[in-house]
């Protein structure tokens, strides 16, 4: 009984959430506009100065490997973590 109830409950929840999402999306800055708050001084700094400051033509690369390199270190750590997790899940270790 409870198992059949879960999908219906989830459906109701999701539909309610979608209604609120619509209200929120109507408020968001218009898609693709140059004057959006997302394209502010940070964006301008990256686009205008990335080449001089880092010497990389691809600005995305400049961001992930230079401006936000700490993030990339942690991202590599996520991969390492998942490898260790898979090891500890599937391997038994040594037998001796």
């Amino acid at each position: 009984m409870a198992k059949r109830l879960v999908p219906i409950l989830a459906m109701i929840l999701v539909i309610m959430a979608l209604y609120v999402f619509m209200l929120a999306v109507a408020e968001l800055p218009p898609y693709g506009n140059v004057d959006n708050p997302a394209h502010n001084y940070v964006y301008e700094h990256y686009v205008n100065n990335a080449l001089e400051e880092t010497g990389v033509l691809n600005i995305v690369t400049a961001i992930i490997l230079d401006y936000r390199s700490y993030d990339t270190l942690i991202e590599a750590t996520v991969l390492f973590t998942s490898i260790m997790a898979v090891l500890i899940t599937l391997k038994k270790g040594e037998q001796h």
């Binding site: 390492f80 973590t81 260790m84 500890i88 391997k91 038994k92 270790g93 040594e94 001796h96």
Partner: peptide, 14 residues
Amino acid sequence: NKVRATWFLTLFML
């Protein structure tokens, strides 16, 4: 065994 213990400690440190 100790290998699994090391893996556990690694995850603990992470």
